[in-house]
């Protein structure tokens, strides 16, 4: 597996629901590498990459937060839009359908977190294209 773990958290559209999650993580010194919030009128999904996904998932569950753990691709590229564009092109040109993606900077490079519709296919394409894949910080 060349993937990393992602936490998807059900977030009510209510004041304080994000704060509760962040303070729980900070209390246990778990660092957030990347976060993305997608929302509808009533609820959202908070996606998180943290320094310790297993521990984060367990401690959030314990305080009654609904957490799902799944796999995503983390592709490390040069931090410029040309590299971003080239990477997305090689994925889509080779038939990879992207459900969603978000990015963050790390050590002067850009990391793309990609959730493809078909993970197996995306992994094959990523290997064939020689992408630099991060296999987790844990």
């Amino acid at each position: 597996m060349k993937t990393i773990k992602q936490l998807s958290i059900f977030l009510e559209n209510r004041q304080g629901s994000l704060k509760r999650i962040l303070s729980a993580l900070s209390d246990q010194n778990i660092e957030i590498q990347a976060a993305s919030v997608a929302d509808t009128n009533d609820y959202g999904i908070l996606r998180l990459i943290t320094s310790n996904q297993t521990k984060a998932a367990a401690l959030l569950s314990d305080i009654g937060v609904l957490v799902n753990v799944n796999e995503v691709l983390a592709i490390s590229i040069e931090d410029n839009v040309a590299a971003f564009s080239a990477t997305i092109s090689s994925l889509t040109d080779n038939g990879v359908v992207i459900n969603y993606l978000y990015t963050f900077s790390k050590d002067g490079r850009l990391v793309l977190i990609v959730r493809p519709a078909d993970m197996e296919k995306a992994e094959l394409v990523a290997s064939a294209q020689g992408f630099q894949l991060i296999q987790g910080w844990e």
Partner: peptide, 13 residues
């Protein structure tokens, strides 16, 4: 009340 989280909006919808 949801019993568990999901990563899939479509599923929730």
């Amino acid at each position: 009340e949801l019993a568990k989280a999901t990563d899939d909006f479509q599923l929730l919808d």
